[in-house]
Design a protein around this nucleic acid. Structure first.
Lengths: 234, 234
DNA sequence: TTTGGCCGATTGTTCAACAATCTGACGATT
DNA sequence: AATCGTCAGATTGTTGAACAATCGGCCAAA
């Protein structure tokens, strides 16, 4: 039997690919949960860039098999959160100066394109909600909340396009950025300056001036990149 | 030992993530080769959407372990080429009408943004080369070559931005589209109409009129999406 | 026709083992 | 003292087998 003649009867029936995405009553796999746990530790800064992740250590630590950990690694490697060095192990991804520009190039492409789409009123409302969330966090001097609010804002921007794929790409990019933002977050007022930008962009969006909003967002991203590049040695 | 205290000495040294991307003298893993083989069969249309891929069958077929096949599946699932249904198996991804629009939304975001970057003369030359490749294929009545030339064209467009991440995203999207293009490719003149578009866009690009090129490309993508939606039942 | 339960097949996960490879240290040579 | 091999230890890459969990279909019963 060759690989190619394992044709299933489902080929002509209901497409399994699309169906699975809608109804999800399934329990996430163990490998998925391991990946989720690592993602969490990555986001919280418990695992710093460059840190080596030993299969056996994590396997024992989480009480799962080494093979399962390995599968979780494959998942995370696909999201660029982790880098596999053959025969050497997996390491928490570390972004160089070039990567910063690269990440912002992706963000410019996705976010600007999404904001041009305009979006339905309820999606614009989600953007507004993220802006208010940021203001509230600022009032409470919650730096952590300020950071997540900012990410919610940009997530809402991308959601304007209503594209599932664009959304997951953005999620991955944001996860990548969280990886080395812990250095920058030490500066207590890092996100403060972005509050006004977000407000202005949101206002333009609500006024229906999508093209102006796009321009503002683009300028914002350029400034943000410059700031990040300055913080990181380069 | 907790997961988080496995701090390696490499954290302060040369970043392993960036270093590995540059020097690649390593031999691809067996799992990677399995994934590559499957990717190939997917691209050639040997494995049609909806087809079920049985672990044991492929393992025996390629002479590798089931666990290795499983790892390859994880890789392909990350690229959306394959869908995992828990406890049911993995299936070749099948795109519904909604997915077509979604894919084109991603393409619009990425390609238009990339073409706006303008790009260095040599990168523009690569676009020109793809256009000529298409013309040559058309002259030889090579439908297959016409299709790949078209993909080279759009790959070259994205390459204008010079972003590694944007490039891989585009590669994945193109791979996804190849998955269900075999239906469309049956129409012998499917790509023919795109030749002129590519030429026009390339000319605008060479003339330095990036904004006009962007507009042309956008219109092209809209038309292409409409065509694809029409071909597929909707 | 519908419901319910059983059976075979496939996946999910673990475990143990071995080969291949890397790292670091030790010692020999120049 | 510095460079170079060699070697042992550790970790990854891969395999094969095993078992539980789950799914799909078949058949019987209501």
């Amino acid at each position: 039997m060759t690989t190619s003649d394992a044709v299933a009867g489902t080929a002509s029936g209901a497409a399994p690919g699309a169906a699975a995405a809608r109804l999800r009553v399934t329990v996430p796999s163990v490998a998925d949960r391991v990946a989720a746990e690592l993602r969490l530790q990555l986001a919280e800064g418990l695992l710093l860039p460059g840190t080596r992740l030993t299969e056996s250590a994590i396997a024992e630590d989480l009480g799962v098999s080494r093979n399962t950990v390995r599968e979780a690694f494959a998942e995370l490697a696909g999201e660029r959160l982790v880098v596999r060095l053959p025969n050497r192990g997996v390491f928490v991804a570390s972004l160089g100066p070039g990567d910063i520009h690269d990440v912002y190039t992706v963000r410019r492409a996705i976010e600007v394109s999404a904001i041009r789409a305009g979006g339905s009123p309820e999606r614009v409302a989600a953007v507004r909600a993220a802006v208010e969330e940021g203001k509230a966090a600022a009032a409470a001097d919650d730096e952590e909340g300020l950071g997540t609010a900012n990410q919610h804002f940009h997530g809402a921007i991308v959601a304007l396009a209503g594209s599932r794929r664009l959304g997951t790409i953005m999620s991955q990019v944001l996860a990548e950025m969280r990886l080395f933002f812990h250095k920058a977050t030490l500066d207590a007022h890092f996100y403060r300056g972005y509050l006004d930008d977000n407000e202005t962009i949101c206002a333009a969006l609500e006024a229906g001036e999508t093209e102006r909003a796009a321009g503002l967002l683009l300028a914002y991203l350029d400034r943000s990149e410059a700031k990040q590049s300055a913080v990181h040695g380069d």
